Amino acid sequence: MPYEPPTHAVERSLRATTGAKTVAGVDEVGRGAWAGPVTVCAAVTGLRRAPEGLTDSKLLTVKRRTALAVELEKWVTSYALGHASPEEIDALGMTAALRLAAVRALEALPVRPDAVILDGKHDYLGSPWRVRTVIKGDQSCVAVAAASVIAKVQRDKMMAELGVDHADFGFAANAGYPSPVHKAALAERGPTPYHRLTWAYLDALPQWRHFKKVRSWADGSGPEIEGQLGFDF
């Protein structure tokens, strides 16, 4: 399907209106998975012409995405990854875990960004970062699209490695997301050390429900939507 290639329009706007010299694009992967970390990539691209075919990682085939990630890792000015573990997700909730992973990525960059383009409509970073949220930024902004591809490929690789000792769960194919193979392995074997134990999928598995953890919502905000995602077993 034809698509409009991403541009530097938002980055140019931030440079013009805020004086930002270094602008990072930020995107995440793994938010809706049942297992594995949530991973955030921060990428700085400058205003150079993007590699051919760059777009949101979800719009690319595995083969093209993997090849493009190799190209991007050499092409970007800099990039860094940040992760929040399943234990941190369970303890903090997804929003706080996303912020933790994003801050880890941003602080790992060789130069601290003056501004951040964040994919989506919600600013989960907040102060002291100067943030511009962009809905579908992974399709429209070069730096965010680059971050999207790198984050996806790197997390998929990580999940494949984690899955070596848990082959029945199919992590190499599903990256910890819901799938028939994943569902069947959970029902038979229960959660691995890489599973998020506050997620509602355990409610449908009475034989493994004793693994379920209940987060303490000290701020009174109640459970987050992501943590309530279940699956009809």
Rank of each mutant, 00 (worst) to 15 (best):
R104Y: 13
V153G: 00
A42P: 06
E4F: 10
V70L: 14
L118S: 04
K212F: 09
A16I: 05
A67G: 12
L109F: 14
A105F: 07
E52M: 13
D138M: 12
A151I: 04
R130H: 15
A151V: 02
L98M: 15
G222F: 12
A101F: 01
H122G: 01
H83R: 13
D119F: 03
G53Y: 07
D56S: 04
A91F: 08
R112I: 11
E11V: 07
A115S: 04
L47G: 06
G32I: 08
L68M: 15
K58N: 13
T39A: 15
I225C: 08
V29G: 00
L106I: 11
A167C: 09
G222K: 09
H195Y: 09
Y201H: 09
L109V: 13
P191G: 05
L68E: 09
W75C: 06
L229N: 05
V29P: 03
L202E: 02
A184Q: 05
D114V: 06
V214Y: 12
K152W: 09
C41K: 02
Y194P: 01
I150V: 14
H195F: 04
H122P: 00
S216E: 13
V153F: 01
S148V: 10
W208P: 04
V116L: 06
P113S: 07
V26K: 02
A84Y: 00
D165A: 15
A146W: 04
R65V: 00
R104Q: 14
S127Q: 14
A69N: 05
G190A: 10
R112G: 07
D156T: 05
A173L: 06
D56R: 02
F231I: 13
D168S: 15
G137Y: 03
G137L: 02
P191L: 03
P191C: 08
D56C: 07
V38C: 00
A84W: 03
T77K: 03
G93H: 09
T198I: 08
G30E: 00
Y194E: 03
V214N: 12
T39W: 05
A24Q: 00
S148T: 08
G32Q: 04
Q228A: 10
A173P: 00
W217R: 09
T133K: 05
A69G: 08
P206Y: 08
G163V: 05
R209L: 12
H83N: 13
Y194R: 04
R15T: 09
M158F: 13
S148F: 10
V40K: 02
V29W: 01
S57R: 00
A175C: 13
Y3Q: 11
T45F: 02
G120N: 06
A24L: 06
D156Q: 05
Q207N: 11
S85F: 06
G53K: 06
A80Q: 12
A145C: 10
P180I: 02
L202Q: 00
R12Y: 14
D156N: 09
Y124V: 01
